[in-house]
Design a binder for these strands. Structure first.
Lengths: 95, 95
DNA sequence: CAAATATTCACCGTTATCAGTGATTATATT
DNA sequence: AATATAATCACTGATAACGGTGAATATTTG
């Protein structure tokens, strides 16, 4: 069986700013769901090798494959919320 | 000059679940910063064509290029916060 | 409406992904 | 420790990304 991964293995960073962190996030979610690599790949409609590389932090993967996994596993990505400040009520400002 | 894009052009979705939405987010941020495609590409260390394709929602782009842009523009991505619930104090649960 | 600027597109050569298969290595279970 | 299971790696052939350049197409400004 695969190595068990819990949230304690997740990077302490709040932000997903690298393929490594994204890969760890995906692996943590998959193992939490208790599904193996091969089944997850089939579920997400990508190859086993590709999923393995994504989880291992390989940055040379396509957005297509990554979003297939994120959506397949129900992982929700957000940027900082669209919250116009008082100084910019017209809504040109991201925070 | 390029078409002006403000946050009003941003997708109403809270979640970034496709290359299209990610591309729009990037473009909104770049235009908000007032820098042109070529300068932004140089700043992020990628080619102009690649940045153009990313902003236009092409899913066949590498994570490497995308993270170069996100980090170059200071766009912070997050998943749902790591908040272990009372029922899982050992930390196996994402919300 | 014309001029200037910004973006997209088509092409090139190089390089690398991708799915699939089978072999190797790592991890769990008894 | 031995067995079963899971994940990684090395290969194949097909397809496509990547950066660079230059041309074509927006888009903005005077």
């Amino acid at each position: 069986m695969a190595k068990k991964v819990t949230t304690s293995d997740m990077p302490s960073t709040d932000f997903i700013d690298s393929a490594e962190i994204l890969g760890k996030l995906i692996r943590a979610k998959r193992t939490e769901l208790g599904i193996k690599l091969a089944d997850c790949a089939a579920l997400c409609g990508i190859g086993i090798n590709t999923l393995s590389r994504i989880e291992n932090g390989n940055a040379n993967c396509t957005l297509a494959a990554v979003f297939s996994v994120l959506n397949g596993l129900g992982i929700k990505l957000t940027s900082k919320a669209l919250t116009p400040t008082a100084s910019s009520s017209s809504g040109e400002e991201w925070i």
